[in-house]
């Protein structure tokens, strides 16, 4: 077998593996969320399909796939069809730059456990997360429904607001790691994770990440009890499923990002890197679900107030402080 073919096969295998793991994980995250929320509310959660309800995700997929795909007559048809894909694809693409383990050697080739170690990985992540807004906004706009439109507008302004503090929370990380590459950032945390070095940046990023995921307490674009279903009110069947899956992939991405930027990525004692990485990501995901089971939804003005008047100044201050600290350490 020629060399290039081996490399190609490895890349394809890696991609396939990532896809499979990611989609399966997303599906089971749904189940996990329902189970955990159930436990928080003293219920067992889904337990009828398969042992412990483990086949529930499959049942859900079958249900979504066989449901009628309904397009409102007044909708902008092409945008309406495109939007859910956009939401899911941008979420998936982000994973291209996530390093989930130290490089391993297979068939005499060193295989980096990252799809593509971009030297501007941070910017790529920020860019894609901004693009993800389009899926939601266009979906809401194209539905031609007042609830969808309101949800889309809310989502748009919310994401723009929190994108800013999220980006600014990453500036200290970049300053500390002196690189935009995610692999380098993980490497820089070999001794101490940045969460301990710069807890303020970690906190800001954590909050912004929850906001970015459009989940409780920041789920205003959906807000079932105000806006029916928010931007996806008019969606049904697998198109709704794409939005749904996109949300959970996004959850995993944000978990990975938190792990990479602040929790030391795959770094950890005793266990292999990939396992450490998975444990950390899954813990972050659990934390997100825990937050959902704990906090109520914010009011819209509180949300904007918090973003612009507290998080943003705080993150700017943090940038300055970190810079000052670095300058002082350099002497």
């Amino acid at each position: 077998m020629p060399e290039w073919m081996v490399i190609l096969l490895l890349i394809v295998a890696k991609l396939g593996l990532i896809f499979m793991v990611l989609l399966t994980l997303a599906a089971y995250l749904v189940l996990a969320e329902r189970k955990i929320l159930g436990r928080i509310q003293l219920r067992p959660g889904p337990n009828r399909v398969g042992p412990f309800g483990l086949m529930q995700p499959l049942a859900d997929v079958i249900k979504l796939l066989t449901k009628e795909d309904f397009i409102p007559t007044q909708a902008d048809k092409w945008l309406f069809l495109l939007a859910p894909g956009l939401a899911a694809v941008t979420a998936l693409l982000t994973f291209a730059v996530v390093p989930f383990g130290p490089p391993i050697t297979l068939f005499g080739h060193e295989v980096p456990l990252v799809v593509c170690d971009l030297n501007i990985g941070v910017l790529f992540f920020l860019g894609l997360s901004s693009l993800a807004v389009y899926g939601m906004t266009l979906g809401g706009w194209a539905s031609n429904s007042k609830y969808s439109l309101l949800g889309a507008i809310r989502g748009l302004s919310q994401l723009i607001s929190y994108e800013l503090s999220m980006g600014l929370a990453l500036v200290p990380v970049v300053m500390l790691a002196r690189s935009f590459s995610l692999t380098d950032i993980v490497m820089a945390q070999a001794d101490v994770p940045f969460a301990l070095v710069n807890p303020l940046a970690f906190l800001i990023f954590l909050i912004s990440a929850v906001a970015e995921s459009k989940r409780i307490p920041f789920d205003l674009p959906e807000a079932e009890n105000e806006l029916v279903g928010g931007f996806h009110t008019e969606y049904s069947g697998m198109r709704f499923g794409l939005f749904f899956v996109g949300e959970y992939i996004n959850l995993i991405i944000l978990g990975s990002m938190l792990t990479v930027f602040f929790l030391g990525g795959w770094m950890g004692p005793f266990l292999p890197g990939v396992v450490w990485f998975s444990i950390k990501v899954l813990f972050v995901c659990f934390f997100f679900i825990w937050v959902r089971g704990t906090l109520p939804r914010l009011r819209y003005d509180q949300l904007m107030h918090f973003g612009w008047k507290i998080l943003l100044p705080l993150s700017l201050l943090n940038v300055i402080l970190t810079g000052a600290f670095l300058l002082w350490r350099q002497g």
Partner: peptide, 8 residues
Amino acid sequence: NMFRPVVT
């Protein structure tokens, strides 16, 4: 609550 018995 997560570690309390289920009431269902």
